[in-house]
Design a protein around this nucleic acid. Structure first.
Lengths: 173, 173
DNA sequence: CGTCGGTTTGCGGATTTCGCAGAAGTGCTT
DNA sequence: AAGCACTTCTGCGAAATCCGCAAACCGACG
């Protein structure tokens, strides 16, 4: 059917991307990257359409997507502005830690109200995004649960007023 | 078929959630919220399965999902850890503004390297997440493009070292 | 009471997903 | 070079899903 596409692809695209120095990250070739890109535009795009776009059979796309999902490289989900969906209070919290930063980060990861945790360089060791239903809940999470973690030296909160942009399009520039 | 489910639902769930004080946000009833919740667990879950879970026919779920998509209330996309996908440098940038904060936020929104923009209360007026390929690119975006915006008083950068958590499960506690 | 707009439902037909067996490609060993 | 283990890709047929549409339903309003 589209055999000429397959033939023209296999030689060049296959291993053009080098696996990163990041130890745990599974190496992604250009085809998987292209598949991810397709699914970043529309998470429900049919496998056949993706296959046509990247030069692979429907079944091959399906297998690759399943593997990417299993490996945790990507997830296909609905995303919303939490404000729209009834979570009225959100905040980014900058945290300074003494001792092991990663163990604190892991503790934050375990909290259901914490949506996003990243270790950073700069005047904060950790940034964590908190999503709550109301002020009381937010106050409780920040003051009781986070500040009380042993090793947390200080925190600074930035309450969200308005979400202006939220994209998932990297690679599609 | 599942008429008893429909019957039991229509009376109670329909308009149990109040529309928010947020002017532009389309009011979401409990059923749409439940649909979103299903799609946050798996963006490719079949409409029929969602219908069974929320007590609606397959066609009704399909129409609601389409409307939520059209209205921009939610989007169904693949999300990844950018580090895994070859974007080696990311940073959160805190920005202080003199004058109109929103116009600066809009300017940031227009930059393709900016993934996330939120207006905040606290010692920053805006938080923006930047995704770049390398150090040069990141430096360029922060120093040349952001700091040069008229009205930007100061910026502070937090370069990402390691992403620890990234979830889209609000509502599913 | 009638009707008007918005939603839901129940279909058939087109499309997509799924599982599987065989072919093809890769790397390693002899 | 040939053999072998392993992974990936392809090409189906069957099952499930998606999609469009017309009719039914429902609350609101005159």
């Amino acid at each position: 059917m589209h055999s000429e596409v397959v033939a023209s692809r296999s030689a060049d695209q296959r291993d053009s991307t080098r696996e990163s120095r990041n130890g745990n990250s599974p190496q992604l070739d250009a085809v998987s990257l292209a598949i991810i890109q397709q699914l970043q535009e529309d998470g429900r795009r049919p496998y056949a359409a993706i296959g046509k776009a990247v030069g692979l059979s429907e079944a091959a796309v399906r297998q690759r997507v399943q593997k990417l999902l299993d490996q945790g490289v990507m997830q296909i989900v609905a995303v919303t502005d939490p404000l729209t969906v009834g979570f009225r209070r959100q905040a980014m919290v900058g945290i300074n830690v003494e001792g092991d930063v990663e163990s604190i980060a892991d503790a934050l990861t375990g909290m259901s109200e914490v949506e996003y945790v990243v270790m950073t360089a700069g005047s904060f060791d950790i940034l964590a995004e908190i999503v709550c239903e109301d002020d009381d809940h937010l106050l409780d999470v920040i003051n009781k649960r986070i500040r009380s973690l042993p090793g947390v030296r200080s925190t600074e909160s930035f309450v969200y007023l308005k979400l202006k942009k939220q994209t998932y399009m990297w690679g599609t520039r």
